[in-house]
Nucleic acid binder design. Sequence first.
RNA 1: GUGGGAUUAGCUCAGCUGGUAGAGCACGGGAUUGUGGUUCCCGGGGUCGUGGGUUCAAACCCCACAUCCCACCCCA
Length: 422
Amino acid sequence: MLAWNLPTTLIKAVKGTRDLLPPSTEVWNRVEAVTRGIFRAYNYHEIRTPILEETQLFARGVGEETDIVTKEMYTFTDRDDTSLTLRPENTASVIRAYIEHRLDQRPGVQKLYYIGPMFRRERPQKGRYRQFFQIGAEAIGSESPVVDAEVIELVIEILKGVGLGGFKLLVNSVGDHNCRPQYVERLRQELQSVASQMCGDCQRRADTNPLRVLDCKVEADQPIIERLPSIVDHLCPACHAHFEAVKQFLDDRSIEYEVRPRLVRGLDYYMRTTFEVVHGALGAQNSVLGGGRYDGLAESLGSPVHSPGIGFSIGEDRLVMSVEGDRITIPLDLFIAPLGEAALRHAAVMARDFRRAGFSVELVEGKLKRVMELANKLGARYTLIVGENEMAAGRYALKNMASGQQESLTREEISARLAVLD
RNA sequence: GUGGGAUUAGCUCAGCUGGUAGAGCACGGGAUUGUGGUUCCCGGGGUCGUGGGUUCAAACCCCACAUCCCACCCCA
């Protein structure tokens, strides 16, 4: 391997990025296939936006003061001096596209989904990569709590559809421009008297970002946090009504959730409904997905019309990690073992025909013992032996690799055997 | 960005108080000239993460760096 330039240092995948190899890619594809099917059922359609955007988009969309924007973006200057950034998330891009292409002029709520890589320059960790994949969706053009509930229902259906169990849905409302500033001010005042008893981080947050204090994980701080005012008790009437409606609609659907007044999402654009799903098998990075409503985002990105929306993004790496079984075998329907030159040519045509019929087929010539071993290693369900006798008779030896049983069959009979495979 | 752990064969890991490397699995070949999975035998593979230092001698001790893992921060 690389023997022709051994002295040079080996080039490896850059820090925080990784190669996804078979058979793991089978799991990824299965997750995506199931997900696309569910999106279709909910009338969501795919949008593909560029991986590169002007830095300004994220600065304005995600929030100038967020960790993502201040220290986690892959930003560089293009040759014409514009500042470009590898997208750290996709909601801002989708909204940008929505405005740019006047999707507000299209009929109904715009329901869009995406699957693709995002980039954040964080310290890698279990379930956290610098290039990571998100499956996300946005429903734009409605403030109705019905949409909130449907989006949450959709994401839960996806999790169940890919076979994930043992997760927990957390919901909250973070208010809007009317009630949130008042609540934050109230919280800030409360903190003035108790912050000195809290951890160093919280003392700092009490000034810079009081909401973050609620998220503190330091054990000793918890009793103090319990006594702090809760945002759900300080929602304005409109936000309160919205939140109550969302919860009612979730109850109607028998969707289990837990209200977490301390669930504070990190992106500035969230308002009213926020939600998250956590899963135990993920270590400290236990969040599989996060989402929420962002009714002011479009305007802040220059939209001429009010375009309220709600969306979520699933950490696909984490989802796959939670769902991935111990051993995945990639099934091979048929392994064809031709014996000799004439048989190889004969078998090649048969292989093409079986492949056209939709079966996965591998064809390898060689000593029978050797290729049988290979067929076994490749996980072939059937092995077809094509030799002089078979060609002359028009009946081929088909061996069931699981049972060891072998039959002499015509092509039609072979097709019939294969057809009953799932 | 901060802290801790790790780095030896493709993979998972042994390697005692310093004396220039081993196992299991995997891979390849054979016992079996048209029959796999179990068994037996044989084999290929490692500048011991990189660069310095100490030493007669370093996988082992010291320093730096890199990468991975775990956690913090924050988030998907």
